[in-house]
């Protein structure tokens, strides 16, 4: 088996296992063979409805959101050539989260959350872009610093919104802010966004490979770096906004997943991007399964679990790199 086929096969296997596990585990545990049966046939039983109407939409939503976050992280890491690349660190998530929280404070219907998250993410993106002109930023440091500072600004605005919010609304807002999939059962929008951004990114895979070795070098090899920078940043913003609108602010998936994939020796983006999507999806499905079962019948915000899994994973990766 060639290396690309092997890597993609492994990622697909992990993703499928995570999805099946997510369908099996819950307040009513369902056997592996039965889950498959319920997926493909309809016998009208309670278990059938649990799988088809409750768990499947939630698992698919978690998968799409995880894939979007991993994809956004992978793209931003190329842009910055820095392991800190993540929609969080660059303030894109912050802009989207601020917009949605403001909508919650004003009591706007949930229908508004997605377009507002988009607006927030793009406003943040344009701020960062407007403040780092092309050509000033061959090394990504300025972009990273600008993003970090803008993220801090969003964080302050989010605290402001929370502190003026009525006590009644506060728990829901906090839960959402920590990343929450408990109301998420609409996989269509994040899945569409995932497919669109993945397609765009894979079309640019070779340019991303080259840009990973420095933007000035990439320009000398004939990459239109001005266009590529803009495309990457807006694609990452779209992915982030779609994820935040559905599931709130979930950290660490975007930071950790691309690194995990690179650790396996997958560097070329035409392979790294699909593997990161599958890995990020699997990670979030597993985290969400744990979030709804660990202290069942209560649910934890999934963002707490991704951070709890992400922090030791990332630290272990860093140690491993040092030992090699």
């Amino acid at each position: 088996m060639t290396k690309p086929a092997g890597a993609l096969g492994l990622a697909l296997a992990i993703a499928s296992a995570a999805v099946v596990l997510g369908l099996m585990v819950g307040s009513a545990d369902i056997e592996f063979t039965q889950v498959l049966g319920h997926l493909f046939t309809d016998d009208g039983s309670v278990e059938d409805r649990i799988v088809d109407e409750l768990r499947l939409p939630r698992v698919l939503t978690a998968f799409a959101v995880g894939g979007l976050l991993a994809l956004a992280g992978a793209l931003m890491q190329v842009l910055l050539r820095n392991p800190l690349g993540d929609p969080y660190v660059l303030g894109v998530s912050g802009g989207a989260a601020f917009a949605v929280l403001t909508a919650m404070l004003l009591g706007l219907p949930a229908l508004w959350h997605t377009p507002l998250a988009l607006v927030g993410a793009f406003v943040s993106t344009m701020l960062v872009f407007g403040l780092t002109r092309h050509g000033d930023d061959w090394h990504g440091d300025r972009l990273l610093l600008t993003g970090v500072v803008i993220a801090a600004g969003w964080s302050a605005l989010i605290s402001f919104v929370l502190s003026v919010s009525p006590a009644m609304r506060l728990p829901g807002m906090l839960f959402w802010l920590m990343g929450d999939l408990s109301d998420a059962a609409a996989p269509l929008l994040p899945a569409l966004a995932l497919v669109a951004v993945l397609l765009l990114a894979v079309l640019r895979a070779r340019e991303l490979d080259i840009a990973g070795g420095g933007l000035l070098q990439a320009a000398s090899l004939g990459v239109d770096t001005r266009r590529l920078r803009l495309e990457i940043y807006f694609a990452a913003a779209l992915a982030t906004a779609a994820a935040v609108a559905v599931a709130g602010a979930i950290g660490f998936v975007g930071l950790v997943t691309p690194h995990l994939v690179r650790r396996l020796g997958i560097i070329e983006h035409r392979l790294l991007l699909p593997c990161a999507v599958l890995g990020g999806g699997a990670l979030l499905v597993l985290a969400d399964t744990a979030a709804r079962t660990l202290i069942s019948p209560m649910q934890l915000p999934v963002g707490v679990l991704t951070a709890l899994i992400g922090v030791p994973t990332f630290l272990a990766l860093l140690q491993w790199r040092r030992e090699r």
Partner: peptide, 23 residues
């Protein structure tokens, strides 16, 4: 050939050299 080198994310040597065929 630029003055400063970047190692990026650790691509293989052959892939890096092949990227010169991009144009």
């Amino acid at each position: 050939l630029l003055q400063h080198s970047e190692r990026g994310f650790g691509r293989r040597v052959i892939d890096t050299v092949l990227s010169a065929r991009h144009p």
